[in-house]
């Protein structure tokens, strides 16, 4: 890794070793390349990190500020958003209520149809069975009774 030419040579060595032997296309060494392409290893083991409190505080403050601002914005938007969601819900409930009221009307119509006098008589005529005499309880005559049969002959 000493020179750029060496690098190129290393790169090209693996790909075309045969051609390298036939023709010399290597770049010539650049003037002062050993200086320009010198890489000096830096040893930071001796460096001591000094805590910069101001910068840290500033960074944390910045982050905190951004978060606080975000929370504030979200908090400000939250009631509006919530009311929007609730409004949607209320509207859907209103429509559902209308549908249920309509269904109720429809059910009432069906019920009235089944309870109509003609229908009741139709079913009474088909399904009614006269109960046995001893299965019928007769209440004692009330105050409004204007005539009653005597108990004996």
């Amino acid at each position: 890794m000493a020179t750029f030419g060496g690098l190129m040579e290393w790169l090209g060595a693996a790909k075309a070793p045969a051609r390298r032997e036939k023709s010399d296309f290597r770049l010539r060494a650049l003037p002062r390349e050993d200086i320009l392409l010198y890489v000096k290893d830096i040893d930071n083991t001796g460096v001591e990190r000094v805590a910069d409190t101001r910068e840290t505080l500033a960074s944390v403050g910045m982050a905190g500020g951004v978060i606080a601002a975000s929370v504030l914005v979200i908090a400000l938007m939250l009631p509006g958003t919530y009311s929007l969601v609730v409004s949607h819900r209320i509207e859907s409930l209103k429509q559902e209520r209308e549908q249920l009221v309509n269904t109720l009307r429809s059910v009432r119509a069906d019920r009235a149809r089944l309870e109509s006098p003609a229908q009741v008589e139709h079913w009474a005529g088909r399904e009614f069975v006269a109960p046995a005499a001893n299965a019928v309880l007769y209440a004692a005559p009330g105050g409004e009774t204007v005539a009653k049969l005597s108990g004996g002959e």
Partner: peptide, 13 residues
């Protein structure tokens, strides 16, 4: 009658 409430008139002759 099986129950006082079932009492009806007596059958005439």
């Amino acid at each position: 009658p099986s129950s006082p409430l079932l009492a009806g008139p007596r059958a005439p002759d």
